[in-house]
Design a binder for these strands. Structure first.
Length: 911
DNA sequence: GAAGATACGTA
DNA sequence: CGTACGTATCTTCT
């Protein structure tokens, strides 16, 4: 037998005991319909959607409500005292689907493994058990929560009894308190069965009074006090409703007899005996293995493990400001193992300034006593004595002295620019946390220490209970910096197991971490800009904007703000009476697609001017932004974000150089202003051709697609010839563009409907096109399906380098969220593998440039493209080693083609 | 002034 | 009812 784990309850603050009562059947049935049957079956063919949904709901309850007593009640059979009273009771219910029936016993097994008591009583329903327990518990000072999809339970609601009624699926619950019941139904909880008797309950096959809904029923109960009052006054109720009431009095009385819950059953257990005894880890493992519940298992263990020590306070500190002559000795004494570093200073856009450095050793290293405090030191880099600086410099540059930073890119650059290059960077806590959970929005050090260490990022206050006079004086800069360094090293150590569990340790060491200095240098170098040309462009686009605005105003006769969607809607739909477009949250869309469609319908010239205005002001705004970003050296230094995109891509900010226009002629003029610097020979761009489709071919192993890439034929032409059954030469431009749209759409989880919208064909034509595609490229279909299935089983997707993306929503009972997660699951391995590959290429190129001591530099990365500034005389060698590095970055079953171009501007270097 | 919504540029 | 981003602008709320 497995060892017991302490129940959640023991950690909950003392107070009134909390009892959770669940209607097992009702919730299981809800779960069954909330989750798609076809997505939940084990390899042996057992359907598990209801078990999954129920267990998921249960885990959420245990986590969010932290009950210390729990009971799940089940119905025994359909024969109850109610069917004796009223033979038709629930007579309308068809027998439950075959896939459902078998799952109830599995749910009972889950409950058994969790040591959650279940109760059932022949002749009675789960609701009666719940009613009895909640009545008893109410007398014994419990707070009671009832989880049931049966509205009859609402009669049990009191100040201390709340019903959680599922709104949608099994995760979205309405908290029905007395106030909520009154608000929703217009009667207090104890009168609810009176109301239900009048209105009827379809799901129980209890007919109500025709023409009487909750509003009328609530009004009557309000007037006559309760059902007896209503019945007594039946004679005086006027109108059709009154007639119907008199005609159906018998049914109403039956209804009321049947829907009242029994509160005094003989039960084998009292509320006190429902206390959770702790659960059986081993049995849960065995059971979940059989059910193939990987994600749920993790959620369960995460939820029910000894709860997080909630922000147990901050960090204790034993640290010192290093004075003259002490830096070398301190480092020798303390900084021999891995240490955390925290730099004070500033850095952005590749430039940095390092003012002071804090170093901390782990809080408790092996061999030390329990809670032994590590050492910490602080040194001011601006005032440090030459001898100390030399010692620090040697230590920083020593690759055998292992260091960990949080978000190293800025600090490494800042230190290097102060003449202190750093080697031996073993880790980066921001990158580590990102690789473990790439969907997080922030990897702020404070958030991470709270999340992983359960501690606030602050200096532990001296708790001597005394008020000091100078309350305003907090910890000084050095203390704060040392605490940060301590947090970094403690966090690093606590991240290790997770890093290995999630297969991310190698990815960190061999890919993301080595990329840090590469990105740092790209930012520092920047790209040269022809500011004069850029200013000319600004004027040009500004003129186009006011031109278009003038003409637009002339057409409609008023001057509105063309940038305001709200004002546009007034003009388009109210004043000009155009047909309504697709809905947005606040009205109707005025996006470019919709405007073009409107123009097709109305040919109204205002639309043309508006579109021109949009284009021109967009371009002007882009140019303005770029002009503002030009640094004193005449170059733009973007910042690359390495922990933002959940798929593993980089992103670029301040300014974003990954979305510089290229599609339109006017837009491309902006690319002409990105130029080679004065000392360079030219710019060189190198990009992967169709890398995502190649990855699709590789991952799917589809013979047809692989052949397409090996044949050297134009991809879309080749695929088109297969899909349409014609010779490649006979693939028309229209056929080719349809195929192109579909091929790319597949990698995004495009639906037939979406494809039809994009190609302006009917959904069934689009479906036909997709069917033909998959007939010819069945491997692609199998692959896409397999990706989602596997992700649902394991909880994550994987790239070719093992980069994971966790998608818990794949098993959400909310269809929108689930389908969104499915599309992410389709896309993540493809987009992410492409990101892996180009990162490998960047490392290889950087190493090659360094090894050969070339002066040319990598400047930009735009997802599948690299931009270099080529030093005089190096064009051929840079081209050669770039192609080498990029096409050799991964071994795929298809070649990785790279195309290269050179020119004085980014535009000219395109190809 | 912050926050949300809308629109749109790239791969 | 197509993935991944960043930025500018307008609107609404605090």
């Amino acid at each position: 037998m497995g060892h017991r784990v302490a129940p959640v309850s023991e950690s909950v603050a003392p107070g009134r005991p909390r009892l959770l009562l669940i209607d097992g059947h009702s919730m299981a049935y809800r779960a069954f319909f909330a989750l798609p049957v076809e997505n939940f079956s084990t390899t042996t063919g057992q359907t598990t959607n209801a078990v999954y949904g129920f267990t998921s709901m249960l885990i959420n309850m245990l986590r969010d409500e932290a009950p210390d007593h729990v009971c799940v009640a089940f119905d025994v059979s359909r024969q109850t005292f109610r069917t004796e009273t009223y033979a038709e009771y629930k007579g309308n219910r068809s027998s439950s689907p075959a896939e459902f029936s078998g799952q109830v016993s599995l749910i009972k097994e889950v409950l058994a493994a969790l040591r959650i008591p279940t109760v059932e009583v022949p002749g009675y329903e789960a609701d009666d058990i719940i009613a009895t327990l909640s009545t008893q518990a109410g007398r014994e000072e419990f707070d009671v929560l009832i989880c049931s999809g049966d509205r009859d339970c609402l009669q049990l609601v009191t100040e201390n009894v709340t019903v959680l009624y599922p709104r949608k699926g099994v995760s979205d619950m309405a908290r029905m308190t007395p106030e909520a019941v009154l608000e929703k139904y217009g009667v207090p909880p104890e009168r609810y069965p009176d109301l239900a008797a009048l209105v009827g309950e379809t799901s129980d096959n209890l007919p109500g009074i025709p023409g009487v809904g909750p509003k009328t029923a609530a009004k009557w109960i309000g007037m006559y006090g309760d059902l007896d009052g209503v019945i007594g006054a039946a004679g005086e109720v006027k109108g059709k409703a009154g007639e119907n009431l008199r005609a159906h009095l018998d049914q109403v009385i039956v209804n009321r007899r049947v829907n009242g819950l029994v509160r005094d059953l003989e039960l084998p257990l009292t509320p006190q005996q429902l206390r959770l005894p702790g659960w059986d880890r081993e049995e849960v493992h065995k059971l979940f293995d059989g059910l193939e519940f990987r994600v749920l298992r993790e959620r369960l263990f995460e939820t029910l493990k000894s709860p997080e020590p909630e922000a147990e306070g901050g960090f204790e500190l034993t640290g010192e400001r290093l004075g003259e002559g002490t830096v070398g000795p301190w480092l020798e004494a303390h900084a021999t193992g891995v240490v955390g570093l925290h730099l004070l200073g500033g850095w952005r856009a590749g430039r940095g300034d390092a003012r002071a450095l804090a170093v901390a050793t782990p809080e408790a290293s092996e061999g030390d006593g329990e809670g032994a405090a590590g050492a910490a030191a602080f040194m001011d880099l601006e005032t440090v004595a030459p001898g100390d600086l030399a010692a620090l410099s040697a230590w920083l540059a020593d690759p055998l002295r292992h260091k960990v930073f949080h978000d190293a890119k800025g600090p490494l650059g800042a230190l290097a620019q102060r003449g202190l290059p750093v080697a031996g960077v073993l880790g980066d806590t921001a990158l580590a946390a990102y690789l473990c959970r790439p969907d997080q929005r922030s990897y702020d050090l404070g958030d991470l220490t709270l999340r992983h260490l359960g501690r606030e990022l602050k200096v532990e206050a001296e708790d001597d209970g005394q008020l000091t006079l100078d309350v305003s004086e907090g910890p000084d800069e050095a203390e704060v910096a040392m605490v940060h360094a301590r947090a970094v090293i403690d966090l690093w150590q606590s991240l290790q197991p997770e890093l290995h569990e999630r297969n991310a340790a190698d990815l960190l060491t061999t890919l993301e971490l080595p990329l840090v200095p590469v990105l740092q240098e790209m930012e520092e170098v920047g790209i040269a800009v022809d500011t004069d040309a850029l200013s000319d462009l600004e004027a040009h686009f500004a003129a186009a904007v006011s031109d278009a605005a003038k003409e637009a105003f002339a057409v409609i006769g008023t001057e509105i703000n063309l940038g305001s969607p709200k004002q546009l809607q007034t003009v388009l739909f109210d004043q000009l009476g155009m047909p309504k477009t697709k809905r947005t949250k606040t009205g109707y869309t005025t996006d470019a697609d919709a405007l073009a469609e409107l123009y097709g319908k109305t040919e109204h010239p205002f639309l043309l001017h508006l579109l021109r205005h949009r284009d021109a002001s967009r371009l002007r705004q882009t140019v303005e932004g770029l002009l503002k970003s030009v640094a004193d050296d005449g170059r733009i230094h973007t910042t690359y974000q390495q922990t933002i995109a959940a798929t593993g891509r980089l992103s670029s900010t301040d300014p974003n150089l990954q979305n510089i226009p290229i599609r339109t002629e006017e837009g491309r003029r902006i690319r002409e202003t990105f130029v080679v610097g004065p000392a360079g020979e030219c710019l060189l761009t190198a990009d992967y051709s169709q890398i995502e489709m190649r990855i699709m071919a590789h991952l799917s192993g589809d013979e047809g697609l692989i052949e397409a890439f090996r044949s050297g034929e134009d991809l879309h032409r080749f695929v088109g010839s297969r899909v349409f059954g014609v010779e490649p030469a006979d693939v028309t431009a229209e056929m080719r563009s349809k195929i192109k749209a579909m091929s790319y759409g597949l990698a995004y989880g495009l639906s037939a409907y979406g494809l039809s919208r994009q190609l302006t064909i009917t959904p069934s034509e689009a479906q036909g096109l997709m069917d033909d595609y998959f007939d010819r490229f069945g491997g692609v279909r199998d692959f896409l399906r397999g990706v989602v299935d596997e992700a649902r089983r394991t909880g994550y997707t994987q790239t070719i380098l093992g980069r994971r993306r966790y998608l818990p929503d794949l098993t959400s009972d909310n269809r929108q969220r689930r389908e969104a997660a499915e599309r992410m699951a389709l896309n993540a391995p493809i987009q992410g593998s492409a990101a892996d590959i180009i990162k490998v290429a960047m490392l290889d190129v950087d190493r090659a440039l360094r090894d050969r001591e070339l002066k040319s530099r990598l400047l930009l990365q735009v997802h599948d493209e690299l931009v270099f500034e080529v030093a005089p005389g190096e064009r051929a060698v840079v081209e050669e080693l770039t192609v080498q590095a990029m096409s050799g970055a991964a071994e795929l079953t298809v070649p990785l083609d790279v195309s290269v171009g050179v020119g004085r501007s980014w535009h000219e270097a395109a190809h």
